[in-house]
Structure formats: C-alpha cells, structure tokens
Design a protein around this nucleic acid. Structure first.
Lengths: 204, 204
DNA sequence: AATCTAACCGGGGTAAAGTCCGTTTATGCT
DNA sequence: AGCATAAACGGACTTTACCCCGGTTAGATT
C-alpha cells in the first residue's frame, strides 16, 4: 500500500493518454488558428485534424470556448510568473501604484497579442467568460487596498477597473486582426489611459 | 434614365407589412423572454409563435443578437430623451462632471433592469456587440473634453471609462437574474465606484 | 501476471443559427 | 385601374456546437 500521509490529492491524476491528447489538441488548435483564423476552427475539423474523435475534444475542454480558454491560460502562465515572483515594478516589492500601472501595461500587451484567442474564449454561455476570477481581479483588488484607496465598496471599484483594462479589447475593439502599426498605437493609447486612471484614482 | 435631381433620399421607406411584422416580432420576443427567459428564445420558435416564416425574422433583424439589440434600443429611447433634452444634471446645462455621474447612475440602472436582454444582445460575432457607437461613448467623450481632462489619447480613455461603466454588468456579473435585494446592492456599489472614478479622473 | 474498474475513446444523433431561392405582394407610375 | 418592379415572405437546406452511449484501455490491486 502507499504510505502517503496525505493521500487525498486531487481526485485522480490525469491519465497519460488523456494528457497526451490534450497537448495534441492544443497544438493542433494553435496551428489551425494561425492558418485559418480562430473563427474557422470547428470542433469536427479540429478533431479530424488531430486524428481523434469528436467526443474526445468535448471531454477535454467542455465547450468550444474552453479550448480557447485553455490556450489563453497557457499563454498567460509566463506573464503570471513575472507578476507573482519577478522583479519590480511588475513583481512584488514596489509601490502599489507603480505595480498597478505595470500590470496594466503587461495585460494590455498580452490581450492585444492574443486578441483573436481572447475573443474566441468568451462564449455567450452562463458564467464569466474569460479570465474568470483570474489573476486580474484579485491583483487589482489587493493593490488598490494597499494603495489606501478609500471606497466603501472596494469590490465594485475593482470590477470597474478590471473592465476598464480588459473591456476595450474584449468588447469594443472590433478589428478582427489589428494591423501592425495599429497595434502599437492602440497599445500606447490604452496604456496611457490606464496610467491616468490608476494614478488619479489612487492619489486624488 | 431618371432625371432625379436629388434622388438619393433614404433608399426607400419601410414597407407597411414589414413594419407590422417588425412590431409583431418584437412584441412576441418580449413576451417569450418574460415567459421562458431570453436564452430560450430560438429563431424557429419565435417565428412560429409570431406566425411568420423563419426567413422573415432574419430579414428584419440580421441575426439572433439583432433582435435583442433592437429590443434594447427601444427600451433605451426614453432614457436617451432624458439625457439629450431633460433637466440637469442628467440633461444638458449643468457641470460636466455632475452630468457624467448622473449618466453613469442612469446607465447602470438601465443595464441592471435589462440585464438579460443586454447580455443576449452581444453575440460573439464580428463587430461591436452592444451599444455600437451608441450614445454612451459619444456622451462620455464630449463630457470629458468639456471637463478639461488632459489626455493625449482621449479616445482610449473614453473607451476605458465606457468599459468601466458597462463591463461589470455585461462581462463579469454572472448572475442570470439578480435577486431583488441583490440588484439594489449592486446598483449602490457600482454607482459609488463610478462616482469615484469620474470625480478623481476629472479633478486630479 | 491476471483482474477489475473507472476513465477514455469514437462517431452517430439532435437542435438551433443562418442561407438560398422560388413565390407572393405592396407601392409608385401611367 | 392596370402594370412593373423591388421588396418581403416562407420554408427547405446547410453547418456547427453539443449530447449520448456502447466498446476499449490505462493503471491500481493482489
């Protein structure tokens, strides 16, 4: 028997073949997105290209949007590492306002780079679409608190700032695939706007 | 050849039967939403209930989301009247910052009241989902300018504030149908957050 | 190694969005 | 009123996300 003192890890580890198929599907999806655009990635087609059954795709990612969420989370991991344990101002240790500004800039860059995937990740289904209770909200909330923002409903303000950060790209930026110069200009403009928002909200 | 000197009025007025069917469809849709919820309003079912063919539904509102957009615009009209020609602080004539605060409160109320329709109005399709270049953005932009906010990219800041206003409800507020007390609490919290945002952004 | 079981795999089936095209009808002109 | 025509109508058709369930297999236990 296993002498584990703490045997109750997550219900069960993912089976090897399942993990292999997950990778295969993610890679195939990534390739198809590059080749034909996210909106042309259909479930049937993805399954066929990957050489697995359609049911398998649905077992791994519960929905079509789930595929893009997974892709997005994967891409996000390295950025999250820099936020959680990198050097300031992005990482821990600096002035909270500077960290907010840096986080915003990083997040905007990330979303612009992954624009197509991010938009595809929000299916019109029930719960929160993208970046559920993702890092963004928690991070913003903690830094606002630390910066000493006085608001009786800090959660609402957090939500609003998160929306100000992500909304323009998810909701309003309609261009299916921003041109090169366009991207740079958007980045500059949104980063400046975010900086204004954060500094003025934090030191009135 | 046509000797029209000023031939190019609007392409043509809407035909009477078309207008009648539009009304019929909107009313039927509204009723179905109340009865079974917005997510159960299917195109086939709507057409059948209204007693018209499916093609007709698609001709009137190009897409499923289009129906909800139309419904939303209809509901919005009275609020827009108050904004454009009502008494201050919502209507014209007062301090721009006060007007921004009042607009936000009104808009939050409106979106909470029409939560289900508003969410259904954003299909995951190409262009801007809800409130296209609707009043919100133009209004915010004008008032920011008038309040003397100094930003080199005013458009971006406008987008971000619009997102702060609408995003929490469209993007993050997951509850399918907020309970009575819940709605009141959300309204209070979001209105306060919006007030903080606007006042601090406008007089630093 | 044999066995047992839960998880995985596949692909056919359903429902709903959106398209097409032949038919009908309202409206402007003579 | 009669006619021409552009618009509206209807419903069959296509596509796609998502469900289901019988057969198969990885991995733990003995």
């Amino acid at each position: 028997m296993d002498g584990d003192l703490i045997p109750l890890e997550r219900p069960r580890a993912e089976r090897a073949d399942a993990a292999r198929n997950r990778r295969l599907l993610l890679d195939t999806a990534r390739r198809m997105i590059d080749e034909t655009g996210a909106e042309n990635v259909t479930m049937d087609c993805l399954a066929e290209q990957a050489g697995v059954g359609k049911g398998t795709v649905y077992r791994r990612f519960r929905t079509r949007a789930g595929i893009f969420v997974a892709l997005l989370e994967e891409a996000e991991r390295t950025f999250q590492q820099r936020v959680l344990s990198g050097p300031p101002p992005l990482g821990p240790g600096g002035d909270p306002v500077d960290r907010l500004i840096a986080y915003g800039q990083g997040r905007i860059t990330f979303l612009l780079d992954n624009h197509a995937v991010a938009r595809a990740a929000m299916g019109q289904n029930r719960p929160v679409p993208v970046a559920g209770p993702g890092l963004t909200r928690i991070h913003i909330r903690v830094l606002l608190e630390r910066a000493g923002v006085g608001a009786t409903h800090l959660d609402a303000l957090t939500l609003q700032l998160a929306a100000a950060l992500e909304g323009p790209i998810l909701l309003y930026l309609a261009t299916p695939d921003p041109a090169e110069g366009e991207r740079e200009r958007s980045l500059q403009a949104l980063a400046e706007g975010w900086k204004i928002l954060v500094t003025r909200v934090c030191h009135p």
